[in-house]
Amino acid sequence: MNEYTNYPFSAIVGQEEMKLALILNVINPGLSGVLIRGEKGTGKSTAVRSLANILPEIEVIEGSCFNLDPATELETHWQIMEAMGHAKPGTGERKIGVTRRKVEVVELPVGATEDRVAGTLDIEHALKTGEKRIEPGILAKAHRNILYVDEVNLLDDHVVDIMLDAAAMGVHTIEREGISFTHPSRFTLVGTMNPEEGDLRPQLLDRFGLCVVVKGTTSIEERVEIMKRRLSFEKKPEAFIEAWRGEDEALVDKIEHARNIYPEVIASEDCLKTIASICLEAGVDGHRADIIMLKAAKTLAAWYGENEVKEGHILKAAEFVLPHRTRRLPMMEMEESIEKIIHRSLQG
């Protein structure tokens, strides 16, 4: 994906919820991603692709096809190099180069096959040299990046299972076609879907940290503004991007700031209790909702430049965390609004 042809993130009109959910995930990759549900033509894909403009830079080990972190994954790097036959075990001086590059949006196409996603035997190498070598798949490329799955509900079942496995563990293990290989694969999962075309399995829903529902705007002014901006972008993309550069950069700075203060954000005992009681009241399965809600509330606090979680942060976080998790028969609509649940739990 070429960053110069992406629509500027800050030029997106409205859709504040979706933008906020995406930003939160950029600040804190620990939020395990966001699922964007909405009809076609509501700007879901545009927003995700334009994320590329506001992503922060990270340090990576030079020449590593796994985007490994020089600070924490040095050992892993050498293990992988050995496993791939690029380095000899435990000999000589080991030096690495470090480069900086932006976090990327890696796309997983709907038609992707199992072997491309998981990684497989490098056929060319095997034919030429008679040696087995792994050809890393999309899950390798996605490490420390954003993995974007458009129409995630249409993905093949077993591809979804493989992806989920990696998303849950942060590590991907390949045991196929004569290859046995493990590499880190921690990514922020961003999925978009149109619920009309079939829903996701609850298991997959639960793996997305946050969920937002987008609707086309009904305000005439907004619609006109969207058209105007889109047309001027299509006419002269460079000029348009240049015009919005300032805003995008301001956003990047704000994100950077939030990233820096996040470790200092404190959640009081009362906050934890509030979160737990909201989740109990909502009747969620398991504990993932609690944990994500806590992280989301902390991230929100950081985004607003505060160093303590307040009730408002929790309530906002609940709106992102609960919609796709409330316990129900997998296919039934959610009958109660999130507000009601929150209200009840705060009273109780």
Partner: peptide, 12 residues
């Protein structure tokens, strides 16, 4: 030992 879902018979 963990067996991932993507495992093929020859590896198992």
């Amino acid at each position: 030992v963990e067996l991932p879902l993507n495992a093929t018979q020859d590896r198992v």
